[in-house]
């Protein structure tokens, strides 16, 4: 099995690779279409702005390729942070821009009570939502590392599997068929993060 970590100039690929190495999953950091097609699992990391992220995906010709692999061919997929936000229909950072549209919803600036600082930065505990999300129950109450100023407003509540509370409810993770994505950084969340990565990859990939 091999995981392709998508390289599109949006940070933190080294940290993701390091976490996968630690877990013993072979991976490659790539923007090569053949390598991505041949891989068994696609991981889209990313930090930075929504607009630049989409622009870079378009420039490297990856939007159609990823959509085909993930939505048509149902290849297992994990998005992290910006890699989750880009799945939405639209983003607003810094202006309204079309996203990948795999998860219905929009990514908007967090409107927080006055006393809360922005970005939402640090460790926050997540809660499982939804009735049949037993898969994630072991992660309920665990702390994960968040760092973001925009958040996903999901249209279909059944896509949301984990939430966090920062004065307002924050979508912490979504899942839809073969697509899984987290707003927080599992690769930066020590053992709780590695355990989550391990479980998601093992579930979705044919070992």
């Amino acid at each position: 099995m091999i995981i392709s970590i998508i390289k599109y100039g949006m940070g933190n690929v080294a940290s993701v690779k390091k976490a996968l190495d630690k877990l013993g999953f072979p991976s490659v950091i790539t923007d090569n279409p053949d390598e991505i097609r041949q891989s068994d699992f696609i991981l889209l990391p990313g930090v930075g702005s929504f607009a630049v992220g989409m622009e870079n995906l378009h420039l490297s010709g990856l939007v159609e390729l990823l959509t085909d692999e993930v939505c048509q061919r149902k290849k297992p997929f994990l998005g992290i942070c910006l890699g989750m936000q880009l799945l939405a229909d639209y983003g607003h950072e810094p202006h309204k821009i079309k996203g990948l549209g795999w998860i219905r919803g929009e990514v908007v600036k967090m409107q927080l009570p006055d006393h809360l600082r922005i970005p939402h930065l640090g460790w926050n505990n997540v809660q499982v939502v939804g009735l049949d999300n037993h898969f994630f129950s072991e992660f309920s109450g665990k702390d994960y590392y968040f760092i973001h100023s925009y958040h996903l407003k999901a249209k279909d509540s059944e896509d949301v599997v984990l939430t966090a509370d920062y004065g307002i409810p924050i979508v912490a993770a979504v899942r839809k068929n073969n697509i899984f994505a987290t707003q927080f950084h599992p690769e930066k969340s020590q053992n709780a993060g590695l355990a989550l990565l391990n479980k998601v990859i093992k579930l979705n990939a044919q070992m």
Binding site: L82, P119, S149
Partner: peptide, 8 residues
């Protein structure tokens, strides 16, 4: 911040 995002 425009290039890398202000979070970093």
């Amino acid at each position: 911040a425009n290039i890398f995002g202000n979070q970093c």
